[in-house]
Design a protein around this nucleic acid. Sequence first.
DNA 1: AGGTAGTGTGGGAGCGCTCCCACATGTGAT
DNA 2: ATCACATGTGGGAGCGCTCCCACACTACCT
Lengths: 351, 351
Amino acid sequence: MATHGTRGRSGGRPTLEEVAARAGVGRGTVSRVINGSPRVSDATRAAVEAAVAELGYVPNTAARALAANRTDAIALVVPEPETRFFAEPYFSDMLKGVGAGLSDTEMQLLLIFAGSDRERRRLAQYLAAHRVDGVLLVSVHADDPLPDLLAQLEIPAVISGPRSAAETLTSVDSDNYGGGRSAVEHLVARGRTRIAHITGRLDVYGAQRRVDGYRDALSDAGYGVDERLIEPGDFTEEGGRRAMEALLERCPDLDAVFAGSDVTAAGARQVLREAGRRIPDDVALVGYDDSAIARHMDPPLTSVRQPIEDMGRRMLDLLLAEIADRRPSVSRGLERRQVVLATELVPRTSS
Amino acid sequence: MATHGTRGRSGGRPTLEEVAARAGVGRGTVSRVINGSPRVSDATRAAVEAAVAELGYVPNTAARALAANRTDAIALVVPEPETRFFAEPYFSDMLKGVGAGLSDTEMQLLLIFAGSDRERRRLAQYLAAHRVDGVLLVSVHADDPLPDLLAQLEIPAVISGPRSAAETLTSVDSDNYGGGRSAVEHLVARGRTRIAHITGRLDVYGAQRRVDGYRDALSDAGYGVDERLIEPGDFTEEGGRRAMEALLERCPDLDAVFAGSDVTAAGARQVLREAGRRIPDDVALVGYDDSAIARHMDPPLTSVRQPIEDMGRRMLDLLLAEIADRRPSVSRGLERRQVVLATELVPRTSS
DNA sequence: AGGTAGTGTGGGAGCGCTCCCACATGTGAT
DNA sequence: ATCACATGTGGGAGCGCTCCCACACTACCT
């Protein structure tokens, strides 16, 4: 009997070995049953399952992780301060989609914020320790080093919104170009001719694509693109206000505004109000995201809906597939996947 | 050379053994340095640290967890659907406090929602597998079985808001009784005499305590307690509306309302408006939580502030202490701790 | 000189799994 | 009967740590 190394465990949790003894089989067989291997006879499987139930056996994750070199956990990394995470419905919707997909799985989801430098260092450490099998990365800016770190560590990752047209990571995105187009086409159809655009942060690729859509739709409609009607914003309300003020001063004759986000639109709306412009009579307003704020705005805001929850779901599926492909089985260098989901314009009374 | 069990590791991450070889010391010594044991000479420590840096060594968490029987992770369990979590600033503030405290630590925080039955089963499984060293439990109702499960599994836990006066778990709470009192005292000082109360969910102990404070403050002020002025709510806006309607019908002469939460106050405000009562001229209104909504309400809402972020911080500290006390060292059955933090009335124009 | 502490240090044993080789045993084709 | 091959099964080895015992060495007392 080992008087050694028994370290205070007092008949604690049952182990595989104990289940095996109880079921009258070997350790390997129990492991096979637990992991759903088909190479077990029905009778044996039943016996093992009975033993598991009787003993209340629960696998020891640490031991499994050590032996199998995997963690059964993935991380949702948000390279933003927590405040933004809670303020923007984008993130919570995405989380909802991921969570829904995860509930069919044994996988555990970790939510990691990497807004500050300190948090980023922690994250780097965390990833270096391979404490997750894969990473979902949302809201990444063009110059973010995180994707490269992930690649270097050979950690499967899926990104929401490619960093550029040449993105190497698997990505899921909504059709920002099409979304931009549809907003403008809608305004054109409503008879607007002087359509301004307050962009999102231009170091976010999706924001650029919306601008592209805006330009092309205007060209296609036969209106030229007046560069003075384009003003950079940053997705925030304050940014929307500033941009709207600049636009109003520069082009007082504008009759429509396509804002880079609903929050931006809210900022623009305030300035328009203060300037005595009625919405939609004098100026039509279209937002982006179709978040709760759009429905509650006065007047309700026309907005371009992104299927964010679906995006989360798709990201998860792709990540799980990539993780599965790295497992002992064959590593058939998957082609890189870039999934793009359609957007949809939701018309309301602001336009 | 082992041709066996080498399982595809191709000069992967360095191990303790490799660091030891590099530094010219034994495995145990490296472990001691990594874990900050004082029983290492300065020269040896320096040599090991150099080797660690050169090799870029990062401890394998799974191996550590297996050998030491701990996970270096704690969970923040929210027994609510995710939607509520994002909707109520209470949770995000608490998360902020916990996160701040955690950044000084090696501990990892997991956010777990247990709103649905399915999620609760998953959680139970998760806890049974001892995948966390401790649990922070927020927003627990009186009949929740979770605390008992935790106790049975002998997992250290700290609860925000005791379930009753006889709470056995370590808890951190704000002074709900005092908060209730201060709201009423404030209204009395403002000359109000017919003060109604829309309660919170009464299966939440804190909501009961606010009622107690309300009653005692009224008694002390020399006004009796008119039971008809007390109407149960449930912390929601809709509940506030319903309660306010009932109150107005039953006691049209009321001149003040103390609501169980800011959101409830928002609901009450709507009904008061519709009934043609001016705030604060006809009816003074006081909320609870001092959330963002209080500042943005029209008119700005007087509210009782709870130091939620501090509460999160304190909960974390207590949990870490409890975890530390279970470690190999002496287990000196700590006295149960019930921490109560002060609340503060923030007067605004609604009263 | 002989104890008796206290420091550092090395390394064996073991944590509870997964992986995989070895070995049955059971088919069907030759 | 003989070989081939699939199907089940047991158990050794090893994942990378922590814990702790054993054994130096050094002091500092008797």
